[in-house]
Write a protein that binds this DNA or RNA. Structure first.
Lengths: 216, 216
DNA sequence: GGCGAAACGGAGATCTTCTCCCCGTTTTCC
DNA sequence: GGAAAACGGGGAGAAGATCTCCGTTTCGCC
């Protein structure tokens, strides 16, 4: 792995316009998935990326592969956010708060929609990434709990689902709307997470596994 | 309009199996819309209702009409919840809390998805119903604010959007999952709404009109 | 500056999927 | 017990998405 940029999986060095288009498509796909869901026409993604549809199919065999790449990207970036919040913030609750807002900016809500439809959840890379994310967020929550700032009756799943739901695009409206308000609503939710708890919650703390099981 | 049950709009009294099927279809449509969104195949709704697709088309001219009926039903029931909470609860914040949880049970989240796609928002009946709902919820919030229990930096839109988002089905999973957790998350959100506010919110209080504007 | 190879874009054939109608059969109600 | 109304399944027609073909353009290197 000399000094050259990360080469494509092919032996060929890949032309610069090809790699640029590939990244444009990924970016466009991310936006399109966020706005219109995981079954948005691929032609629409190509159009949004400013390329012909043939170019899209040249880079990605099918929708499945495109989703996989986009979701992996997002998952990795969210994990980085969790880990850097963990490393850089001194206050435990502030670290949690920072992570939540950063994760929102990465549009976890839309990511999760993708994760479910057509995403190989048993792919080793994906499993690794997910475990890393879970570990980091669990750590963030543990820290906040032990410092007495986080109510003790909430679990990882509660937080992740809330982020997912509150950052999803409101059906039928343009993205601008939810972007304007999601941070407000997340902040209110976070305020509700603070100790001491202001009410008693029904059910039990949601874990991540609960969602795994239900997916099968 | 004597003592007989509410007659169908036709002159004919309507057969009992016909009205029963009609209601089955409406119920099935509500569930199907909640689970799969407003563009779920009509044949799937008919199947879920246990009737042939022809029966569905006999009762409703097209998808538009079906959505209209289902959404009107839900809107009316949610409005009733708001008004009864207003009338029956003595504590202002408890009234608000009760409304939120009841509204969640009516699946406002799914309703809103419907409201946007293919719903005549200028229909006089709909406008009336919406204004009644807004008035009642605004009253609930005003009461809670004036009693010093609701933080003052949140608006009607903040609450409605949060309910909408937190009660939507998690993409790709079965309904059971979200039903299990939505009340927990709404409760946490409500705890965050309590005065005194535990943080400062970005942006301004969301109003309902903000969403109207964006829809056009 | 020019040449070969690789990438590009648009148009269209194919395939899936949803809508909606037809018509023989069953159910309701008098 | 019979007429009228409602029902169900199958399938034609339409719409839309996927993916490929092929002529044109761009890149990278001599």
């Amino acid at each position: 792995m000399g000094g050259m940029a990360t080469a494509e999986r092919r032996a060929q060095p890949a032309r610069v316009d090809a790699t640029r288009n590939r990244e444009r498509i990924i970016a466009a796909a991310r936006e399109a998935f966020v706005e219109h869901g995981p079954s948005v026409p691929l032609d629409a993604i190509a159009h949004r990326a400013g390329v012909g549809n043939a170019t899209l199919y040249r880079h990605f065999a099918d929708r499945h592969e495109l989703i996989h790449v986009v979701a992996s990207y997002s998952l990795a970036r969210i994990t980085e956010q969790a880990e850097s919040a963990l490393a850089e913030e001194t206050d435990a609750f502030e670290a949690l708060r920072r992570f939540v807002h950063r994760a929102a900016d990465e549009r976890v809500g839309a990511l999760c929609s993708m994760l479910y439809e057509g995403f190989d959840k048993d792919d080793p890379h994906v499993v690794d990434a997910r475990i890393r994310l879970e570990t980091a967020v669990e750590q963030l929550m543990d820290n906040a709990r032990q410092s007495g700032q986080l109510r003790s009756d909430v679990g990882l799943g509660d937080l992740m689902v809330a982020i997912t739901q509150l950052t999803r695009p409101v059906a039928g409206t343009e993205c601008a709307l939810i972007e304007r308000y999601m941070h407000r609503h997340l902040q209110i939710f976070i305020d509700g997470l603070r100790a001491p708890a202001r009410s008693e919650l029904s059910g039990t703390a949601a874990r991540f596994e609960d969602f795994e099981a239900d997916r099968a």
